[in-house]
């Protein structure tokens, strides 16, 4: 009995030391929490959360300076994922930050109206707009995140947000209607 206790105790000690050593020896550099939070954010870079991009918001959450319900493009899905990660309770999106966006959109510049002022280029957080001063501008659709930041600065209002078209490659099967929650016992009876 005593030997068993001793043996197990010794084992526990050895593994404890091993784990402790491993934790120090193989410590990950940088702030993994910010990385993890950033990985959950939609990367729209729209600034609606009150920070100049997703990463700054992630940093603020990690520091405890911002709540988890401030990202409208991510919506409830992101909030739940963040709550999961941080071990908190999910909460509804803060209406001060905006409405959850259900439909994906991209910006499109009506090229015949564009005066080439470059204001939209300066606003785009991901450099998805192509153009030079006094040249017509255009949006690289693949890179546009749909953040809408370019719409307001345009002096001639030639930028529209249009819904992303569904094609065969991006089409998804819709979820089947949920089965009845309970066998129809009452109606059978």
């Amino acid at each position: 009995m005593l030997t068993a206790i001793l043996a197990l105790g010794a084992l526990a000690l050895v593994f404890g030391l091993l784990l402790g050593f491993a934790a120090v020896r193989f410590k990950v550099e940088g702030d993994p929490l910010v990385e993890k939070i950033d990985a959950l954010l939609p990367q729209t870079q729209c600034g609606q959360c009150g920070f100049p991009g997703c990463r700054p918001y992630a940093t603020a959450i990690a520091k405890g300076e911002a709540d988890i319900n401030q990202c409208p493009p991510g919506g409830q899905t992101t909030i739940v994922a963040l709550a999961d990660l941080l071990g908190r309770d999910p909460k509804p999106l803060n209406p001060e930050n905006g409405q959850e966006k259900v439909e994906k959109t991209v910006a499109i510049i009506r090229e015949d109206i564009c005066i080439g002022c470059t204001l939209c280029i300066q606003a785009c957080p991901v450099d998805a707009i192509l153009g030079a001063p006094k040249q017509m501008h255009t949006v690289i659709e693949k890179e546009c995140t749909g953040c809408e930041l370019c719409v307001a600065p345009c002096p001639v209002e030639c930028i529209d947000m249009i819904p992303v078209k569904e094609d065969i490659g991006s089409w998804k099967w819709k979820a089947p209607p949920a089965p009845a929650t309970r066998p129809r016992a009452e109606s059978d009876a």
Partner: peptide, 9 residues
């Protein structure tokens, strides 16, 4: 797409 946006940002 998010990864691309992150890089570009």
């Amino acid at each position: 797409k998010a990864e691309l946006a992150r890089q570009r940002f």
